[in-house]
C-alpha cells in the first residue's frame, strides 16, 4: 500500500502532472465551448480555471506546486506577445491609415480603464494596496504585476484582476458592440485590446482577422502607455 502512496506523492508534486492537467483542462474547455456553440460565456480561460482549482483544492496541492508544471505554458506569453507582430504586419496599411483614431482611442480608453476602476474601488473604501493592484488591470498580466509591485500593490492580486478583466471583456464585447450597432471591426478590435489585453485579443482573433490585428496593437500600445503613465506617476510622486 505504501508503494501506491509513494507513487501518489510523486504524481501530485511532479510538474508533469500539472502541466498535463492544464493542457487537458484547456482541451475540455474548448470542447465544452464548441458544444455551447462557442458562446462568449463559455470562455476557455474561465472554464479551465474552474476545472483546475477544485482539483488542486481536493488534492491539497499548493499554487507554487501547480505552477512548477504550469510555468512551461505561462512562459510562452512572452513569445506570444512578440508574435502579435504578425497580424500587425499583415494589417499594417490599415493601422497606418487609422493612426489618429488609434492615438485618440488609446489615450481615452487607457485613462478610462485606470480611472474608472480606481474610482469605483475607492468609493468602496478599498485600501491603498488593493487600489495599486487594480490600477493596471487592463494590461497584460506580466506588465500589470510589475507595475502593481512598483506602486506598492499585491502582484498576485493584480494578476487575478487582470484575468478577470480579460475574461469580462471577452464575454461582453460581442453582445455590447452589437447592441451599440457598430460593424467597424477595426474599432471593435481596438476597444477590446485596450480594455481586455490578451484575453480580449484572443476573442477578437476568433471573431475577425482585422479585429484581431487592431486588438493586438491596442494591447501592445496600452501595455506601453499604461507603463509610461504609471512610471511617470511614480517618478513625479
Amino acid at each position: 500500500m505504501s508503494g501506491f502512496s509513494e507513487i501518489w506523492v510523486y504524481l501530485a508534486t511532479s510538474p508533469l502532472t500539472w502541466l498535463g492537467a492544464t493542457l487537458v483542462a484547456f482541451v475540455l474547455a474548448l470542447r465544452i465551448g464548441a458544444l455551447l456553440g462557442n458562446s462568449p460565456l463559455a470562455n476557455s480561460v474561465l472554464l479551465s480555471a474552474a476545472m483546475l482549482i477544485p482539483v488542486l483544492l481536493l488534492t491539497g496541492t499548493s499554487y507554487p506546486t501547480y505552477f512548477e508544471g504550469a510555468q512551461f505554458v505561462h512562459f510562452l506569453l512572452g513569445p506570444a506577445t512578440v508574435s502579435l507582430a504578425v497580424p500587425l504586419y499583415r494589417n499594417l496599411a490599415a493601422v497606418k491609415r487609422s493612426i489618429v483614431p488609434i492615438a485618440v482611442a488609446l489615450v481615452a480608453g487607457s485613462v478610462t480603464a485606470m480611472g474608472s476602476a480606481l474610482a469605483i474601488a475607492a468609493i468602496f473604501g478599498a485600501p491603498p494596496e488593493v487600489l495599486a493592484s487594480i490600477a493596471p488591470k487592463s494590461v497584460s498580466a506580466p506588465i500589470a504585476m510589475e507595475l502593481a509591485k512598483s506602486l506598492g500593490g499585491i502582484p498576485s492580486l493584480a494578476a487575478v484582476l487582470v484575468i478577470l478583466t480579460g475574461v469580462t471583456g471577452a464575454i461582453i464585447v460581442t453582445p455590447l458592440m452589437n447592441a451599440l450597432g457598430t460593424k467597424n471591426y477595426a474599432a471593435r478590435g481596438f476597444a477590446v485590446g485596450v480594455a481586455s489585453h490578451g484575453i480580449g485579443t484572443a476573442r477578437a482573433l476568433q471573431v475577425n482577422d482585422m479585429a484581431g490585428a487592431f486588438a493586438g496593437i491596442a494591447m501592445a500600445l496600452n501595455g506601453a502607455f499604461t507603463a509610461i503613465l504609471l512610471t511617470g506617476f511614480l517618478l513625479l510622486r
Binding site: 492544464t22 474561465l46 505561462h74 510562452l76 494578476a159 487575478v160
Partner: peptide, 12 residues
C-alpha cells in the same frame, strides 16, 4: 493564446 493565461487564472 487563451491557454497561456490559464496558469495565471488558477492563481486566483
Amino acid at each position: 493564446l487563451s491557454l497561456l493565461f490559464v496558469p495565471s487564472a488558477v492563481g486566483i
